[in-house]
Design a binder for these strands. Structure first.
Lengths: 258, 258
DNA sequence: CGCCGGATTGAAGGTACTCAATCCGTGTGG
DNA sequence: CCACACGGATTGAGTACCTTCAATCCGGCG
């Protein structure tokens, strides 16, 4: 209950019920007995090696909805493993346009975009009450020189981010509005399932506006797509609570011509 | 003239005229005297350290337009530094849709998407006669444990790829057709400039179809946007040869409401 | 010369956007 | 406790932009 996030990778292995409340988040806790360990460290590390990770990570304070974990342009120090809650990342264009580039949930790593310039390339904003585990990057790099399996793990996390982004490019570049939403819902479903939560019933943590920004659509279009899925019997939706009624039907919907 | 690509990062420092023809590409050549070195290795490595890099890299044979450097699903072994020519990467959806996810040119590194699964997540296809330098990833990882500045460099390359992809998400998610093309042309211009080539006159290596796929547009829309820019006096275009006449005008075009 | 693929241009149609009204759930204050 | 206000979500009508379909053009090559 008083544990701490380590280094995440998704797609994630089953991790049992990891969504227990954290009673005292200021406590310094160890990766070695974190209940996110199977989520964050699917790596063959010995107990001794995990203790080395413990030594470099800290549990940070809570964030409430709207709080910034970091801001675009800010100096890069650390990666963050999400221990509780969820975040969105967004890039802002000088003309005021904004694009949500991702929604991150428990066990995922955030901040990789900042490595190349040592400054954050996007904002990270809490979508709900959240806690993160801070991983100072210099120390992480040093440790990964010692531990090849940690090094490989770090590379995989970054590579996975690249693959994920390419998937979104495919979505944005070639899918129609309702297909985009179907892909989005199925992706959420998978990620909840990987965390031992229901793949068919969940609460959205983001607004229609935020979903739209992520999917390259206006909020009204997102809303219409939700309604259409509901009228087709594929889902049941009531503002932010969603039930996926016909998963195969949703999957089949993707790629269908008009 | 008979040199070899190393490990690239962009945005790239000025690198003089790196576009000399390679007389005999089968020769084993060294990073240590590669004329791409300033492009590929903007890293503080000693001569001895660079020789260690030499030891793990090989120059691969030429590819002609349409040749696959690797295919989606193929086993991952190596990263590739482009030594001459250019490539596109594309992901294919089961329903036949395809999305070009990037165009890579000389000095850039390709294959990072495969690290997470050990299998390539996209196809890489030559756009013209090209040569690459193969970098076996296991050896690269091992060496980067020895050389912190190489390690950092590798992380930066991966991070830069993530940032680049986020920029494309912004483009695909929130820009209109002509803005997308303007961004694309300005990005090419910058990349040519970084290689000591003209930022205002160049040959496109890809078809309208391929540009369209990259930008999330149909080829006719791309063609119309080219024509419109030409009629507005911003560029001069004749099939694949492009001259950017009014760079500030192009820049100003981005973000303008309708 | 004539073919072929890629590029351009035109006209018609469809999808998603814009603008606007209404609804609904939550939280606040009387 | 209820009325009201507020922000987010839904729904509708009209429009803009991009796509689709189709014809034509152009350059390279056999």
């Amino acid at each position: 209950m008083t544990n701490k996030g380590g280094i995440s990778a998704s797609p994630l292995p089953k991790a049992g019920n990891v969504q227990q409340p954290v009673s005292n988040s200021r406590l310094k806790i160890a990766c070695s007995n974190c209940n996110l360990r199977e989520l964050c460290l699917p790596v063959n590390l010995s107990m001794g090696e995990i203790r080395q990770l413990d030594a470099i990570s800290h549990l940070k304070r809570s964030y409430v909805r709207g709080d910034y974990l970091y801001r675009s342009g800010g100096k890069f120090q650390s990666l963050y493993a999400i221990y509780r809650g969820s975040f969105k990342t967004q890039v802002l264009h000088e003309d005021g346009r904004e694009q949500v580039t991702g929604f991150q949930m428990i066990g995922e790593i955030i901040g990789l975009d900042a490595i190349c310039t040592e400054h954050h390339a996007c904002d990270a904003v809490a979508l709900e009450n959240s806690e993160v585990c801070e991983l100072p990057f210099n120390k992480l790099e040093a440790l990964s020189r010692e531990l090849p399996s940690l090094q490989r793990h770090l590379h995989k996390i970054m590579s996975r981010e690249i693959v994920r982004d390419q998937g979104i490019m495919l979505l944005l570049g070639s899918m129609r509005a309702e297909e985009r939403l179907a892909v989005f819902l199925l992706s959420l479903s998978q990620r909840f399932a990987a965390r031992g939560l229901s793949p068919t019933q969940f609460q959205l943590r983001m607004s229609r506006q935020e979903i739209g920004s992520y999917l390259g659509l206006k909020l009204e279009t997102v809303s219409r797509a939700f309604s259409h899925f509901q009228n087709s019997g594929l889902i049941s939706v009531h503002t932010r609570s969603v039930e996926l009624i016909d998963l195969p039907g949703l999957r089949a919907f993707i790629g269908k011509q008009h």
